[in-house]
Design a protein around this nucleic acid. Structure first.
Length: 420
RNA sequence: GGCGCCUUGGCCGAGUGGUUAGGCACAGGUCUGCAAAACCUGGUACACCGGUUCGACUCCGGUAGGCGCCUCCA
């Protein structure tokens, strides 16, 4: 099994099974209903876990919830805790409805404050961090390796609005002193406030796994500064931290190609309600995980057509057609799901196909539809009409069946009914 | 300004120094009362300009266009 590692910019072999493979994938900041782009790292993490287990690995996934930061304060002045709690529940609900199960652990920043504070204390003891007026900053100059993950050169990083409390403009916050209007805070040795974003993830990942683990994932937009800073913090304590960094490509919602069916609401919830979980999962399979994907109606419609194609395979007799080795080869090579999907399109063996689709949360495509009694009654009436040669009536009945959301297909012996 | 990625047939999208990707859509056919499903057939693509090579979509250089990030966006 090989995966591309952002850190080395190469495809690398994983250690042989059983591993372990401990994976930490960055989760959302909870200030609104998560959008479909947030689903990509979640889905990728769950799929990878499933595939690694299939390959004999002991794979564990931790996926955090950032439930304290500026965005939440801004979105709900003086009520951020309530919003964070509500949005966390939404996220759990939405991701659960993708039908992939849940990670082993979904730690929340607000429940990891003691670990975060201890982490910061150690950084201060090592003199790689300093407290100023209730803030604490990481001293970037103390890390000669800073920039090796992202390739950013610290001297070229764009200047932000100057912050006189920083020794160096490149330094980043580990702890922020509480400001008026912020309704959540914790007391720490250097004052009342709340943690910075980057330290949360270092602390939560190490709290779950210890100072070294195999894979750290997240969106490509997190490489810099978020992940670069996580690496710097942990390395500063002598911790190796993540071995392999996986960064998924972004979804693009380009102008006129923007989904008409969803309007501006591209929340996971809305996409689930409009297109269904199977279409979303198939859609994510169509592109390699590192590449960007355009999110629009056309792409979703094509995914839906593929979903139907697989359903139809299960509606016919199973044939001995399919070789697991082809599928395995595709996924073992940097988890190439489009290649794997191409392999699956050639398969006609129900058991094999169900097993493969099941790894992607799509075993439901093998489930037979059971039509309600009234639809069956209409179909029986249509069969009688056809036997009588009354095709006009038969066609009318077919329209009625369609109006109820079902398709009727004639068979030598009678008919089959399928949900449209 | 800096770091990095991408450009494949109507659409989506893998991949390889010389061999059919696959899917979706479309057209014709077989089957069907008509359909649906299935199966068969059809379209030979790799932004542009140079270079390397016996041979490049695949390697190198350049041009154009698109995209991500540059201190809290997955």
């Amino acid at each position: 099994m090989r995966l591309y590692n952002t850190l080395t910019r190469r495809v690398e072999d994983l250690p042989p099974p059983p591993g372990p493979v401990r994976m930490y994938f960055c989760g959302p900041t909870v200030y609104q209903r998560a959008h479909i782009g947030n689903a990509r790292p979640f889905v990728l993490g769950m799929w990878l876990r499933a595939w690694l287990r299939e390959r004999g690995y002991d794979a564990i996934l931790v996926h955090n919830i950032t439930d304290v930061n500026d965005k939440i304060y801004e979105a709900a002045p003086s009520a951020s805790a309530e919003l964070a709690e509500k949005a966390t529940a939404w996220y759990l609900e939405d991701t659960a409805d993708l039908g992939l199960g849940l990670p082993e652990l979904m730690p929340k920043a607000t429940e990891s404050i003691p670990q975060i504070v201890r982490f910061i204390e150690e950084l201060i003891e090592r003199d790689v961090a300093y407290a100023v007026d209730g803030d604490v900053y990481f001293r970037v100059a103390s890390d000669p390796g800073y920039g090796r993950l992202s390739g950013q050169r610290p001297d070229q990083v764009e200047e932000q609005e100057p912050n006189p409390r920083k020794e160096d403009p490149r330094d980043f916050a580990l702890w922020k002193a509480g400001k008026p209007g912020e309704d959540t805070w914790w007391d720490a040795p250097w004052g009342r406030g709340r943690p910075g974003w980057h330290i949360e993830c270092s602390a939560m990942a190490e709290d779950a796994f210890g100072p070294v683990f195999e894979i750290h994932g997240g969106g490509l937009d997190l490489v810099f500064p978020h992940h670069e800073n996580e690496l710097a913090q942990s390395n500063a304590l002598g911790h190796p931290f993540a071995r392999i960094w996986t960064h998924n490509g972004m979804l693009s919602f380009a102008g006129e190609k923007m989904s008409k069916s969803l309007g501006n609401d591209v929340s996971i919830r809305n996409v689930l309600d409009t297109w269904g979980r199977e279409v979303i999962l198939l859609f994510f399979m169509t592109a390699h995980w590192r590449k960007p994907i355009d999110f629009d109606d056309d792409a979703l419609a094509q995914a839906k057509a593929q979903v139907e194609g697989f359903r139809n395979v299960f509606r016919r007799e199973s044939e001995k057609a399919g070789d697991w080795a082809d599928f395995r080869r595709a996924l073992d090579d940097d988890f190439n799901t489009p290649e794997a999907l191409a392999v699956l399109h050639g398969w006609r063996d129900h058991d094999l196909l169900r097993r493969a689709l099941g790894l992607f949360g799509l075993a439901s495509l093998a489930e037979a539809d059971v039509a309600p009694a009234d639809v069956v009654e209409l179909a029986e009436a249509r069969r009688a009409a056809r036997t009588d040669g009354d095709f006009a009536r038969a066609d009318r009945l077919r329209d009625e069946i369609a109006a109820l959301g079902w398709d009727v297909r004639d068979t030598p012996g009678g008919f089959d009914l399928y949900r449209r």
